[in-house]
Design a protein around this nucleic acid. Structure first.
Length: 749
DNA sequence: TACATCCTTCTTTTT
DNA sequence: GAAGGATGTA
């Protein structure tokens, strides 16, 4: 059957089950891919197989993932296997795919195809405005909660009316107001011609529901659909997938219920658990051999996850030898924990031939990174931190992006309000209120400005500033329509709006830093322009494509593998990655599992899955560390070891030999546990010495002290006594600082 | 209107 | 111990 001279499809690279997952191309297929079982390989081979063996044209394939990084890697590997043809396959994230569909068809739903994409901070801003207008006290109904509820509703494809119906059943006395807030929020978004992240999915679903001919055009095109990380799909994504695959039913979903960690964002684990119910003819292939981790690491992780109830019963077999046991370490506090991690890294590099890039440190929340960063800085360990404050969340970047959005979408009130007084133009709250009032009748922000200027409602400095802004916007739109290249155009925005000038005039360190960030944004633009993207003709379209791309990037997307540094990130970011050596820090009650998950058994299971995801990232060595006390709210608290320690089997895990403190559930091969004695508190099997908050009464002016951030300095004055004493210190590295004793953590040198 | 200062709350996790 | 909001002052 094979034509001579043509290379055979490399099916022999795969094990039996992987082969089945690749070659079972027709009909619904569920691939249960355990951690490290070669999932990406199966997906990419499957795509290549469809192209080469089944002669499926590339445009008939759609593969969706959750992150741009995953999509990018998938594309690279498909191109590697299938060559040029692979380039034409539609491989994308859910959100980007929806944007692409909506940009083309959303006008059928009465929304401008130049719609803005509101990110979370834009949405929060709108919600706060709405709640303020409704005169709702933030303590009764916090904006965060409203925002969460609206998002959850949208992910479940629930519109305000339906929410109201459901609310009648639940009889939440706040429900009326929440529904009203939802309605007003929607109304504001529509007035700004904006969609939020959840809308991208919701409106795609609605488009397909209301315009069957549009759905049909995609159905005609897409004969094979593949969904990665299926366990993390929410209801909206699930429905979109159903719509698209209803006709051909060649739907392949790949996932692992044990790695579902996005419930809080609407992910519905029943989508994967019930796949066989939804598609009765589905074939299920289980990939149960783990090629990544050593036997001890896998044994420990498998035992942990087996304690969960809501999962498909299955076992993951270790292909690799046992290796070293998982090591548990209890430090006195988070600084010592960081010290242990740093020392271990240096030691492993020296003695075991690892390099910096082989290490990753995971934590539950971003705030934990500081202590680790501090020690790494001190011990000169290069590190890359993923997540935290995103580049695109920086004020100056958001301002410029808002300006670009407003240029494209003049109805975008959110962006307008952001930039109307950035840089300062003398337009304060009073003027803005007048503009808003003028705009209430469906005017665009700029029309509203014109109206208040004409009526004389705004005068003086504010009027001058607004006039300048209008002029700048007008001139920039003109420049864009003349086809100014994007890089040149962004520079023009920086100049014409006076943004750069205002920063330069400030001449502070902070301003210089912001300018630097803006230069980085220009580098991003250049990067974007150097990608080949066929099909964009005008400068306007290029700008629109640029904005779409940066609206949908996450921090993980920029993680490069070639660097030589230790990677620091949250457990959530770690999904899909692997490292030779992994440290999981903060293995404590209230951190992992997080205190917000206490109580609800479903949430506790998700925390356990999170722990499982972290552990299964490790190839050779895995360390679980905790601190007996930790400063998280600026204050030290004693901790309890994570309950997950007690889920681990003794044969795979041992207490690190340098640990001074015991951990319940972890066998110490050397010593027996010390008995509780006077002055100690026994909690369960664990013993604590309550750590007194250090009194700083011993500090006197003239003394040398060390501060974790500013280094060594000299005490200039002490006001008051005890933990609340105010201490003035002069630091050669940081200048004069006024510190509160209990927070400052000063050490006498 | 802008800036300083005090107070509160905050911490999950992110496309 | 930061960031955002509220309040007070120039």
């Amino acid at each position: 059957m094979k034509t001579p001279g043509r290379t055979l499809f490399p099916l022999k690279d795969l094990n039996r089950n992987q082969q089945e997952a690749v070659t079972q191309t027709e009909g619904p297929l569920l691939v249960l891919a355990g951690a490290g079982s070669g999932k990406t390989r199966v997906i990419t081979y499957r795509i290549a197989y469809l192209l080469q063996e089944k002669k499926v044209p590339p445009y008939a394939l759609l593969a969706v993932t959750f992150t741009n990084k995953a999509a990018g890697e998938m594309r690279e590997r498909v191109i590697g296997l299938a060559g040029k043809e692979g380039r034409a396959v539609w491989i994308s994230t859910f959100h980007s795919a929806c944007v692409r569909i909506l940009r083309q068809h959303v006008e059928k739903l009465g929304i401008s195809r130049h719609f803005s994409i509101f990110d979370e901070s834009d949405s929060t801003r709108v919600i706060k405005e709405v709640l303020a207008e409704m005169n709702i006290d933030a303590r009764i109904l916090p904006p965060r909660r409203v925002s969460y509820l609206i998002s959850r509703a949208k992910n479940a494809l629930v519109e305000p009316d339906l929410m109201a119906e459901q609310g009648e059943v639940s009889r939440d006395h706040l429900m009326d107001r929440i529904v009203q807030a939802y309605r007003m929020y929607e109304e504001r978004l529509r007035r700004s011609q904006a969609l939020d992240f959840d809308d991208l999915l919701f409106f795609t679903w609605r488009l397909f529901e209301e315009r069957p001919e549009v759905l049909r055009s995609y159905e005609d095109l897409l004969h094979y659909i593949l969904v990665d990380e299926y366990q993390d799909t929410n209801h909206a994504q699930y429905q979109i997938i159903r719509q698209l695959s209803a006709r051909h039913r060649n739907l392949c979903v790949v996932g692992d219920d044990d790695q579902s960690i996005y419930r809080w964002r609407g992910a519905d684990i029943t989508n994967i658990l019930d796949f066989e119910k939804d598609f009765p003819e589905a074939i299920v292939v289980t990939l149960g051999e783990n090629y990544r981790s050593t036997g001890h690491i896998l044994g420990a992780a498998s035992c942990l996850i087996s304690k969960n109830k809501g999962r498909k019963e299955k076992e993951l077999l270790a292909v690799r030898p046992d290796g070293q046991k998982v090591s548990a370490y209890a430090a006195m506090d988070e600084r010592e924990e960081g010290g242990f991690i740093a020392a271990s890294i240096l030691q492993l590099i020296r003695h075991e031939n690892f390099s910096y890039r082989d290490f990753a440190v995971f934590y539950r929340i971003n705030a934990q990174s500081r202590a680790i960063e501090d020690t790494f800085l001190k011990m000169n360990i290069p590190y890359t931190i993923v997540g935290g404050v995103r580049f695109y969340d920086r004020k100056e970047i958001k301002d410029i992006i808002s300006c670009l959005r407003l240029i494209l979408n003049p109805a975008d009130w959110g962006s307008f309000e952001r930039i109307v007084n950035a840089p300062a133009r003398g337009v304060g709250k009073a003027s803005l209120d007048k503009i808003r009032a003028a705009g209430i009748e469906g005017l665009t922000p700029e029309e509203a400005v014109q109206s208040v200027l004409k009526s004389g409602a705004v005068k003086g400095k504010a009027a001058q500033g607004l006039g300048d802004l209008l002029e700048a916007l007008l001139m920039l739109r003109e420049k864009l329509s003349l086809g100014t290249p994007l890089d040149e155009f962004v520079v023009a925005v920086l100049d014409e709006t006076g943004y750069l000038g205002a920063l330069q005039a400030q001449a502070t360190d902070e301003a210089r830093n912001r300018i630097e960030n803006l230069h980085e944004l220009l580098a991003v633009v250049d990067d974007f322009l150097s990608d080949d993207r066929p099909g964009e003709i005008s400068a306007t379209e290029t700008l629109a494509a640029f904005l779409d791309q940066i609206s949908l990037v996450s921090d993980i997307d920029n993680l490069k593998e070639e660097g030589s540094s230790v990677t620091l990130m949250t457990l959530h970011m770690a999904k899909g990655l692997e490292f030779p050596v992994v440290f999981m820090s903060g293995m404590e009650e209230d951190l992992l599992p997080h205190y917000r998950a206490q109580g609800e058994p479903v949430e506790m299971e998700e925390e356990r899955r999170l722990c499982y995801v972290g552990m299964t990232r490790a190839r050779e060595l895995l360390f679980l560390t905790m601190a007996r006390r930790r400063r998280l709210f600026g204050q030290y608290d004693n901790t309890l070891p994570s309950r997950f320690f007690t889920d681990l089997p003794a044969e795979n895990v041992e207490l690190h030999r340098e640990t001074v403190y015991p951990i319940p559930g972890i066998t110490d091969s050397l010593a027996s546990l010390p008995m509780p004695s006077e002055g100690k508190v026994a909690i369960g099997e664990f013993t604590y010495v309550p750590e007194p908050v250090e009194g700083e009464d011993r500090l006197r002016p003239g003394m040398q002290v060390r501060h974790p951030m500013f280094g060594v300095g000299q005490v200039m004055a002490v006001e008051g006594t005890g933990p609340d004493a105010r201490i003035t210190v002069y630091f050669p590295r940081g200048g004069k600082k006024k510190l509160i004793a209990k927070y400052a953590n000063l050490q006498v040198v």
